[in-house]
């Protein structure tokens, strides 16, 4: 009996806790937007963060994109040739990448490469009282530290996703056309005929923007909100990666069901 009550109490306090944090995060998001002016007026602050979030993630994004595309090429060919339609390999690779794999996998990689770094940096600044010192110097840490990192992430993510997708298509082409010998013309022309710019490419880009906002917000929030100890920072980093992954997958489901509902 007491076990049941204890369990219920834990569930209850967890729920209350979660709602609290959600409320905090929303308020924090509002503050970040409110204090974003500086990130645009003093562009070099944001450019610096684009370097850390975007440029430093390039390598992992390009390499993983290439490999995911090559695997898609191999597996897709394997399946398609059973139905005698290996010419459609380009379509398969391009559609799966532009619509789903590009934004989602790039988002997951971005969360673990750049999101965790943002959380760690802000968290450590909190531990070493740098945020308090800044606040004491009449410089808002949200405007000076948080907002540029947020916007750096928001700008980087769609570009990284586009690079991932493009790299993946090249990888699929490499395997399909260069190594297996699918017809080059068929590969590209079928792809072009089946992939619509507005419907497939743009929706993928919109997804990547949404994921960029979500991951960047989670990363800066977890860093800013962490318990200011070494353990608190490490836990915040873990939370960033886990919540980002969950957020990406959940948002992907929601967006997909809106974007591609009952159509082709």
């Amino acid at each position: 009996m007491s076990g049941v009550i204890g369990f219920l109490r834990r569930v209850g306090s967890r729920t209350v806790d979660m709602v609290w944090r959600l409320g905090f995060a929303t308020r924090f998001f509002g503050l970040v937007l409110l204090y974003s002016g500086q990130s645009f007026r003093r562009l070099h602050l944001t450019i610096r963060e684009i370097y850390f979030a975007g440029v430093l993630s390039l390598l992992i994004i390009l390499v993983s994109g290439l490999f995911v595309g090559m695997v898609l090429g191999l597996q897709g060919y394997e399946t398609l040739q059973r139905f005698g339609s290996s010419d459609a390999l380009g379509v398969l690779v391009a559609l799966s990448l532009t619509r789903e794999l590009g934004p989602v996998v790039a988002g997951l990689l971005f969360a673990s490469r750049a999101g965790s770094a943002i959380t760690a940096e802000i968290g450590l600044m909190k531990v070493t009282e740098q945020l308090k010192a800044m606040d004491m110097m009449a410089v808002s840490p949200i405007a000076r530290v948080v907002a540029p990192r947020f916007w750096g992430g928001v700008v980087s993510m769609p570009l990284l996703a586009a690079l991932f997708t493009a790299m993946g298509i090249l990888g699929g082409w490499l395997i399909g056309v260069v190594f297996i010998g699918v017809d080059d013309g068929a590969f590209w022309s079928q792809m072009q005929a089946a992939v619509d710019f507005r419907y497939d490419v743009m929706n993928g880009v919109i997804k990547s923007i949404v994921f960029g906002v979500a991951v960047s917000l989670i990363a800066v929030f977890e860093g800013y909100d962490c318990t200011p100890t070494a353990e608190g920072v490490s836990r915040a980093i873990t939370r960033t990666v886990v919540s980002s992954a969950l957020a990406i997958l959940a948002l992907d489901f929601v967006l997909t069901s809106f974007m591609f509902r009952g159509q082709s």
Binding site: Y51, A162, V195, D196
Partner: peptide, 19 residues
């Protein structure tokens, strides 16, 4: 970074997709 990102987007819209 921004230039190659934009190039990738251009590649997706011109070479991969069609209007």
């Amino acid at each position: 970074f921004v230039v190659i990102g934009a190039a990738a987007l251009l590649f997706l819209s011109l070479k991969v997709g069609s209007f």
